[in-house]
Design a protein around this nucleic acid. Structure first.
Lengths: 228, 228
DNA sequence: TGTACATCAGTGAACGCGCGTTCACTGATGTAC
DNA sequence: TGTACATCAGTGAACGCGCGTTCACTGATGTAC
């Protein structure tokens, strides 16, 4: 394969390398890097876990020779960490989009769930990776995902404070409640992604259950009394 | 290694084969099977995921030749399903023990969390497996775990009804709430198992957070109004 | 602007290794008489 | 009870294969003059 076309597909440049490079050479390198990241995600589509992927598989899928891999990552673990970073970016973008949206306060939960479901479907592979490796990946990757999820949770707590949805609650309390919400979200993501296609009934039931669970959480949150 | 001592360790006979066999031969076969199951769990102790284990590793750990594996399972997937079954048994045993315990109603949540934490630590490997493969394993195993978790959730809903903790709620509502609780539990299990040893402060904070989250859930559940 | 040299992303051959699976086997256990 | 044969859990050698990693390389891109 010619040097001129070593790339099969682009990767929405989520995880940039440490130092951005410019010029023809730099941008081509960036594209190959992105191709490797996207190849890894693509290989997880059919239910394979990241841990089960081999370096050679990833390069094959990316349309590149195995040894080229080492120009970008020291090994699969480092590629995994780059994917975690991309997942973190995707999560934070969700909050940004939710902030911009104008869901009605009267049915904020259902509206948010709709936005979320759509977002999970649009970012299928990233959610597959994050949800799948959160508990199942290597300790290194688990730890990195935990950090991103905590970051996401705290940002959500700030947003909740901004909305004044739960007035008078301490930051710690808001974080505790958002932790609960984020668990529900990631759990629902797995369910959404495992949904068999063209089963609107099952899909609807899943969404309704998610809505009900969030309602319970927020009902409880409103009742929650801060310690003196 | 002599035929007389092909076994290294026992496995608390969670997953019996389809048809119980008797006699010396049968029980020896059973012990090797258990050794294979336990070897797989043991290999996951250091953060490895089940998907990353090889058949040969498992037989090596079990003190048996690779080909002996096929006397018990068609492949690693089948062994995984046996582990899921064992995990399901362990989950249901938790409910049985919780039922027998006499936690005070006044601090039922904290008491239950203590029991749970202890139970997770006592059944470390099974929880590692179930929590880790719930989202990260092969589709086959994920599906099997999902079934066991649903089963567990429904049984917990029945128990909740028996305790009359949430009078007047429909079965569907109790199941929805228990789904929330079970998510918290499995999430907490991962955190408990990832705890660095000898960090009582961190451990205490984790338990307190878990308690607070369950309180929020039950506060919300008490507020929940059934649809007419 | 043109030339000569340096850089370095991607190549391709090669390596040793552990893998899953096959096969014919061994010898203790089980069974029929 | 003793004997002769069947069963079958576990053995050990062998296979072909994909793996991660090494190495010297190629040739387009970048840089210095």
């Amino acid at each position: 394969m010619s040097l001129l076309v070593p790339i099969r597909e682009d990767f929405p440049s989520a995880s940039a390398p440490e130092r951005e490079e410019s010029g023809l050479r730099g941008s081509r390198k960036q594209r190959t890097r992105d191709a490797l990241l996207e190849a890894a995600l693509r290989l997880m589509r059919e239910g394979r876990s990241f841990t089960g992927l081999s370096l050679r598989e990833v390069t094959r899928e990316a349309g590149v020779v195995p040894t080229a891999f080492y120009r970008h990552f020291h090994g699969m673990d480092e590629l995994g960490l780059a994917l975690v970073e991309g997942g973190g970016v995707t999560l934070r973008r969700l909050l940004r989009e939710a902030r911009r949206s104008d869901v009605q306060f009267t049915d904020m939960i259902r509206g948010s769930v709709q936005i979320y479901k759509r977002y999970v479907e649009d970012n299928r592979l990233q959610f597959l990776f994050v949800a799948g490796e959160r508990a199942g990946g290597s300790p290194l990757i688990r730890e990195a995902i935990r950090r991103e999820v905590t970051h996401f949770t705290n940002e959500m707590a700030q947003d909740l404070r901004g909305l004044n949805a739960l007035p008078g609650r301490s930051t710690a309390t808001l974080q505790m409640i958002c932790g609960l919400v984020v668990n529900c979200m990631l759990n629902a993501a797995i369910d959404i992604l495992d949904l068999p296609p063209d089963q609107p009934e099952q899909e609807h039931e899943l969404v309704e259950n998610f809505v009900r669970q969030l309602r319970v959480v927020f009902l409880g949150a409103r009742q929650w009394k801060e310690k003196p």
